[in-house]
C-alpha cells in the first residue's frame, strides 16, 4: 500500500527509479516482517534505549576498546561474499533499527519520511540509526574485517 501511495505522490515526477525503489522498499519491509515473526522481538523501549551500548565506552566516555583499522574497506564492495556478510549483519539487527537503516541507507529515504513510516519521533529515529550503525560496525568488524590490529 505504501508503494502505491508512493507512486501516486510521485505521479508528477514519476520515474522508473522511483517505482523500483517503491518495489524494493516493499520487498525489504516484507522480508523484515517475515523475519520478525521468526525472531523474538525486542520491545520499543529496548531499541530506543542505548544502555546496552554503554559497554563500548569507559565511564569517562572514551572507547573501552580501540576501534579497529579497516584497511581499504572499499575493496570489499567488489566481493559478493561481503554483501552476504552485510545481509547477515542486517538480519541480526532489532526490527525497527533494521527497518530504519534499510530505509535510510539502502533506499536513501529522508529521516522525516522514515519517522512517519515507523511512527516515531526524529530523536528516536536517530537513536535507531545510531544503534544500527554501531551494531553493523561491530558485526562487520567481527565477521568481515577480522580481529582488530592492536598497536
Amino acid at each position: 500500500m505504501a508503494a502505491i501511495q508512493g507512486v501516486q505522490n510521485f505521479a508528477g515526477q514519476s520515474s522508473i527509479r522511483t517505482w523500483l525503489v517503491g518495489i524494493l522498499k516493499h520487498k525489504i519491509i516484507d522480508h523484515l516482517r517475515r523475519q520478525s515473526r521468526e525472531a523474538p522481538l525486542q520491545t520499543d523501549a529496548d531499541e530506543f534505549s542505548l544502555e546496552d551500548l554503554d559497554g563500548l565506552f569507559k565511564s569517562d566516555g572514551h572507547y573501552a576498546e580501540e576501534p579497529a583499522n579497516w584497511s581499504s574497506p572499499d575493496a570489499a564492495l567488489n566481493e559478493k561474499r561481503f554483501f552476504e556478510a552485510l545481509e547477515r549483519c542486517m538480519q541480526g539487527l532489532p526490527d525497527k533499527s533494521a527497518k530504519a537503516f534499510m530505509m535510510r541507507e539502502v533506499l536513501g529515504m529522508e529521516t522525516g519520511e522514515i519517522c512517519k513510516e515507523l511512527r516515531i519521533s526524529s530523536t528516536n529515529c536517530w537513536v535507531l540509526l545510531y544503534r544500527a550503525r554501531t551494531a553493523l560496525r561491530l558485526c562487520l568488524e567481527k565477521s568481515w574485517f577480522g580481529a582488530p590490529a592492536r598497536p
Binding site: 523500483l20 524494493l24 572514551h62 572507547y63 580501540e66 576501534p67 579497529a68 583499522n69 579497516w70 574497506p73 572499499d74 570489499a76 564492495l77 559478493k80 561481503f82 554483501f83 552485510l86 545481509e87 537503516f101 534499510m102 541507507e105 539502502v106 533506499l107 536513501g108 550503525r133 553493523l136 560496525r137 562487520l140
Partner: peptide
C-alpha cells in the same frame, strides 16, 4: 579512535548503497 568511527560509518553508507545495486 573517533576518526576511525567516522570512516566506518561513511563506509557503511557506501556499502548499503552498493548493496541495493547488487540486489537489483
Amino acid at each position: 579512535a573517533c576518526r576511525k568511527i567516522s570512516m566506518q560509518m561513511d563506509f557503511l553508507r557506501r556499502a548499503a548503497r552498493a548493496y541495493r545495486v547488487s540486489d537489483d
